[in-house]
Computed example of a mutant assay.
Amino acid sequence: MKNPLIYVFAVIMSAVSLTSCSDDDDKKPVSSSREIKYEVTGSTTATDMSATYTANGGGTSVDITSLPWTYTYTADTDTYAGGFNFSAIDAQPGDKVTLNVYQGETKLKSIDATADSDGIIVATVSATFN
Results as ranks from 00 to 15, higher is better:
T74C: 09
T70A: 11
T47E: 14
G94W: 10
T124F: 06
T45E: 06
T128R: 12
S17V: 10
Y73V: 01
S117R: 10
A88R: 02
K37Y: 04
A88M: 03
K107P: 00
P4Q: 10
S50L: 11
K107V: 01
Y80I: 11
V40T: 11
P93N: 10
L18M: 13
V16D: 10
A91P: 03
G82S: 05
S87I: 03
P29D: 01
S66K: 15
V30N: 00
T47H: 11
S33L: 02
V8E: 15
T106N: 06
K37C: 09
N3S: 15
G94C: 14
T106H: 09
N100G: 07
W69R: 01
K2Y: 09
T44E: 01
A51I: 14
A113K: 00
D24F: 08
S33G: 08
G59Q: 13
T47I: 08
Y7R: 14
L67T: 07
V101Q: 01
I120T: 08
T52R: 08
Y80M: 05
S117D: 06
E105P: 03
Y102I: 05
S110V: 08
S31E: 01
G82T: 05
T114R: 13
A75V: 02
A81T: 09
M13C: 14
I89M: 09
V11T: 14
S61N: 05
S14E: 03
T52S: 13
Y71F: 15
S117T: 07
T54E: 10
Y73K: 08
T72K: 04
V122R: 07
N3D: 15
N56R: 14
C21E: 02
I121V: 07
D112V: 12
S66H: 13
N130Q: 14
K27H: 03
D118H: 05
R34Q: 07
A91F: 01
D25A: 12
P4E: 15
K96C: 09
G83N: 02
A75K: 09
S110K: 08
T79E: 00
E35L: 07
I89R: 12
A10C: 12
D23L: 05
A51H: 08
G57R: 12
F84T: 03
T128H: 09
Y71L: 12
S32D: 02
F9I: 15
N85R: 05
T65C: 06
C21S: 11
I64K: 04
T45W: 03
A51T: 15
T52K: 11
S126E: 01
D24I: 03
M1E: 15
Y102T: 02
T114D: 07
N130R: 04
V97L: 04
S110M: 13
G83P: 02
Q103E: 08
T114A: 05
K37I: 11
C21T: 08
D90T: 03
G82W: 00
I89Y: 05
N3Q: 13
V30M: 02
T124C: 13
I12F: 15
V122K: 09
Y73M: 08
N100K: 15
G42N: 07
A55D: 11
D78K: 03
A75C: 06
T52W: 04
R34G: 04
D25G: 06
S126W: 00
D90W: 00
A46C: 08
P29S: 07
T41R: 13
Q103F: 01
I6F: 05
A88H: 06
T47N: 15
S32C: 07
N3E: 13
D90F: 00
T114S: 07
